[in-house]
Design a protein around this nucleic acid. Structure first.
Length: 346
RNA sequence: GCCGAUCUUGGCG
């Protein structure tokens, strides 16, 4: 079991949560550790219901598995469930406290986070990093100064706060002051520049990077679209050695944003041949169909979501289709869809 | 003694 678990967690840790989930069925024996790894994998895949089901079916649970469930709730935005579980836990440790802390900052409840932080029996560097991450720009500087120690995560957190808000001068100062630069740091600066600086600067940074990963390439792809270089962007995507759904949706969004609705729809069809589109891809495809006036394709896409891909259409998807039908003058169909959808119309 | 949970980078909203 120990060996199997090690393999499972190796998959999960390298971003292959789906493989870990698939693999665990063929294991001869299970332990709490197995369930915890799979629970975390479900959470990474956004399958919160499966995580919950697994958790409730576990023959035994301990602090670690309960904390994993807590984290799954927190990451999926179920803060109330997280709170309830936290209160019912038989024992707490530093990690479970940190998870609750992060649950609050991720929901922007910074006051609650602060009071929780103050009430914690012990705090460590992770707790400080969570607080740093939940701080406003002005506070972040102070928190960073006051922290008893800092690591690369602290530096990256500070850096990305400034970079994401367009304070690039300060971000660059922080970058130069950092003891070391990992890919995350480079990517933070790159994406900050992509959103707030001119295109030459992005190219310069991209060229200056000691290494590039899928995220770096995706940022470059998006930057090309933002600057109107549609053909360059297309070539970049073709030459990327890996493409995930984020890269594909940047492509879809970029094409649609530039008015190439038909090319976006073609792209969507080619995505389907190699991967399972996620909710964002479907939204973008439906929007493209709507703008291109391709009602038939849009409806087919919408139907195939649940039929072929087992993806439950969200309210957002319904809105796209209703909008598409409305624009095309199919008012009755639009109305029928609104009355048949499992959401309250808004 | 060995395997599992928490913090930092890219897409639509």
């Amino acid at each position: 079991v120990v060996t199997w678990n090690a393999i499972l967690s190796a998959y999960a840790r390298h971003g292959h949560a789906a493989k870990a989930i698939a693999l665990h069925n063929s294991m001869p024996e299970w332990s709490v550790v197995t369930s915890t790894v799979v629970l975390t994998a479900y959470s990474q895949e956004g399958r919160i219901n499966d995580a919950e089901l697994l958790f409730h079916r576990m023959p035994t649970s301990d602090v670690v598995s309960t904390t994993a469930m807590l984290s799954a709730y927190a990451q999926s935005g179920h803060i109330l469930k997280a709170k309830r579980l936290f209160e019912r836990m038989p024992e707490w440790n530093l990690v479970s406290w940190n998870v609750m802390l992060a649950a609050h900052t991720q929901s922007f409840h910074s006051l609650e986070a602060k009071s929780l932080f103050k009430s914690m029996p012990v705090v460590d560097l992770v707790s400080w990093n969570v607080i740093l991450n939940g701080s406003s720009l002005e506070e972040a500087r102070q928190v960073f100064e006051v922290m008893p120690e800092r690591n690369i995560v602290s530096w990256n957190t500070l850096l990305s706060s400034f970079a994401q808000h367009g304070h690039l001068e300060e971000a660059k100062q922080i970058f130069s002051a950092m003891p070391e630069h990992d890919l995350r740091a480079w990517n933070s600066i790159l994406s900050g520049s992509a959103n707030f600086e001119n295109f030459r600067e992005i190219l310069r940074l991209f060229g200056a990077m000691p290494a590039r990963d899928l995220i770096s390439w995706t940022v470059l792809l998006a930057a090309n679209f933002q600057n109107g270089f549609v053909d360059r962007a297309t070539k970049i995507l073709e030459r990327m050695e890996q493409r995930d759904l984020v890269a594909w949706s940047v492509m879809l969004a970029g094409l649609a944003h530039s008015g190439y609705f038909h090319r976006a729809i073609e792209t969507f069809h080619s995505i389907k041949t190699t991967s399972t589109p996620d909710e964002t891809c479907f939204v973008l495809a439906l929007l493209a169909c709507g703008h291109a006036g391709r009602v038939y394709d849009g409806v087919r896409c919408f139907v195939s979501m649940s039929l072929d891909f087992k993806t439950r259409p969200s309210k957002h998807h319904y809105t796209c289709v209703v909008d598409m039908l409305g624009r095309a003058g199919h008012l009755e169909d639009a109305h029928d869809l609104v009355s048949s959808m499992p959401f309250a119309p808004d």
